[in-house]
Amino acid sequence: MVSSILPLTLKDAVVRKGGVQIVGPVEFALEGGGCSVLIGPNGAGKTTLLRLMHGLEKARSGSVSWNGTQKDVRLRQSFVFQTPVVMRRTVRENIAYPLLVRGRHKKEALVEADRWIDEVGLSASGHKEAHILSGGERQKLALARAMITDPDVLFLDEPTTNLDGASTQEIEALILRAKADGVRIIMATHDFGQSRRLGDEILFLYRGQIHERGQVEDFFDHPTTEEARTFIDGDILV
């Protein structure tokens, strides 16, 4: 085992779909701790870039590389999708599933799942079928399922986009706690407030490219590119 699967290094990475270049070329490295926020308008390529880093998309050219063996790298990162994938099982079975995949005994995995159910505040719903959960509860389930494997890196794709204020607060508190526990967080959002509350640094994505990267306050107070300035001022970017 290596100490961390970071740094993550992207070199001239490009994703194309249906003959269109959606992301790239992008070139950057992520290391250390904290929370990096991918910010940018809808369709900028945030989801695609997250999926590329996580290994769900292939780079058409360029490279994405982690530190460690392929298996280590796969097992030590988690991804929370914008629309949580809810398996047709009970809540605790959903949360325990990644441990089963890793070969842990079911009983043991469920005990661990129950711990995470309490952690994210789903204690009343552990034995319920997961599909009856509300949007916020589904997102909590997804977070617990992502955290149960004790990942080095956690990817979050607009984790609160469809949630009300109260659920958003709860989810953000959980993300902050994961960050405090030393999980390296990489998240996409188009919510300025959220990126200030959770982020340490901003990567501004526009039309598939990183136009700016910097500390949160610097980015919002002194954007260096025209696109970022327009985006921050709330003008419509096309």
Binding site: H54, L56, K71, R74, F79, V85, M87, Y97, V101
Partner: peptide
Amino acid sequence: LYHDLLISLNTSKWQRMKA
């Protein structure tokens, strides 16, 4: 429905079929 999650969790083909 499950595709992204099961790929993300690095499941084997057999684990996918089982789930």
